[in-house]
Simulated assay, not measured.
Amino acid sequence: MRRRLAGTIAGIFLLIGFWFLFWPKGTPDPPVQPNQELGAASPEGERHRHGGSHHSADEASGEDEGPPPGDRIPMPRCWQGLVDFDKKASLTDLRAAISNAVAQGDPLLAEYLRDRLAEMIGGNADTALTVLGWATQASGPELGILMGSIKESSAVRDPRVASALLATGEQKSAASDLRGSALEALETQHRLDEASIGRMKAIAMDDDAESAAWIATRTLGRVMNEDFKRTGSYQAYWKELLSVGKDSPETGVQLLALEMPSYADPILEDNDLEVLTKLLMTDPDRSVREMAAHRLSVTRSPNKVLAIYQQAFPAEQDECVRWAIFRFTVRVGGAGAMPILAAYAALDPRFKDDHQDFMAIYAAGTVDFERVWMGKVERHQCVLEEGMPH
């Protein structure tokens, strides 16, 4: 039996925002030294929260009435000494400041320092490798920040850095979060050579790789889409993704591998039809069969695909897989597919209203499938266990 990946794979960092917090009234935080406790609030933030005349009156009376209800003005968080730190900080200073910001639980400052570290790395491969060395000794938010800075730098596409990240992702003895963050940093590559694609596939197929398998699959797909947009090339990636989609022991990895072309929608070749047809007809997991129906719909051979759908629909017993076949028949055949839909509806009365819906939409002159789909009433409750609607 295939195992399912559980939980969210990658952590999500908070974005830097100027209007994130309100300052507490009358309780300014104590000043801090920039190289010691970056992230503490500056007293200036409290002093500038009121206009000058109101503030003077408050000081004279000893009362702080504050702004009227509903007129409270949020102020950006400020860190005392940050400007001076920014000018003078070395690479090791930034590392210490990141550790301190994480310890203080200040995500905004941590994000700022991550971006600053990415700037400091720039295109310097040696600096990126130094930070990667630190990352291999880190964990939790600090690991994410250090790896994130490498991912945001241009040095991530240096062959030495990319090779080191892939090697880190391959380390079976390493913690899963370290492996995953290294593989995620490779998402920004413009292309992967065939050897790297094969190594990434091996991670994706590793039954013991846990979350790293999922992230390797996603990274492979994202680089494929980037390469496809730049050069029109996708076949080397898709060959391995299709293999993962066919043979992975993890249903979540299977689904992701089959889904990744959806983000660029390359038109698949006829030699892919056999594998996808087998998945549609025989895979034990209904969500994989749905995804196979989806993947078949972007084709150069619509008549072949319509024939596959017509063979699969009567043999399929699951309503949601039948619904996938039904609607992707429309995507492939357009208005000309209405007789096929009529045959489906005659076989399964649950789809009679869907047939009528599509007939009415096409009769009104709509032909583009995206617009056809926007005008379609949803009549089937089909949501995959991973939470992905189809």
Rank of each mutant, 00 (worst) to 15 (best):
E226L: 05
P249K: 09
A96F: 06
W214Q: 09
G232W: 13
L255D: 08
E240R: 14
M200T: 05
M388P: 00
K172L: 04
V83P: 02
W23Q: 05
A185Q: 02
F18S: 08
Q310N: 13
G105S: 13
F18M: 06
D247R: 11
E378C: 00
P31K: 06
R2V: 04
M338N: 06
A10Q: 11
D368G: 02
D58K: 01
R300S: 14
K376C: 03
M388A: 11
S173A: 15
D368L: 12
R2K: 04
E170R: 15
G51P: 03
H190P: 04
D368H: 13
A315H: 12
P68V: 03
L276T: 04
P30I: 02
E274I: 13
A164N: 05
P249R: 06
I203F: 10
R286M: 05
L82A: 06
L280F: 06
S262I: 09
F313R: 03
Y234W: 15
L241V: 08
W23D: 05
L21I: 05
R331T: 00
E44N: 12
F369D: 10
F328L: 08
W373Q: 10
P69E: 05
T217F: 09
A343L: 12
D193G: 09
A57N: 10
F351L: 13
S42N: 09
M75G: 03
L14W: 07
Q381L: 07
A174L: 07
D272P: 00
R191M: 09
L258H: 03
A138D: 12
N271F: 11
A360F: 03
R371D: 15
Q310A: 12
D354Y: 01
Y234T: 08
A364M: 07
L38F: 10
N225C: 09
H50F: 14
R300A: 14
C320H: 02
G336I: 00
I308T: 12
A195M: 08
E37A: 11
L165M: 10
R47P: 00
V377A: 12
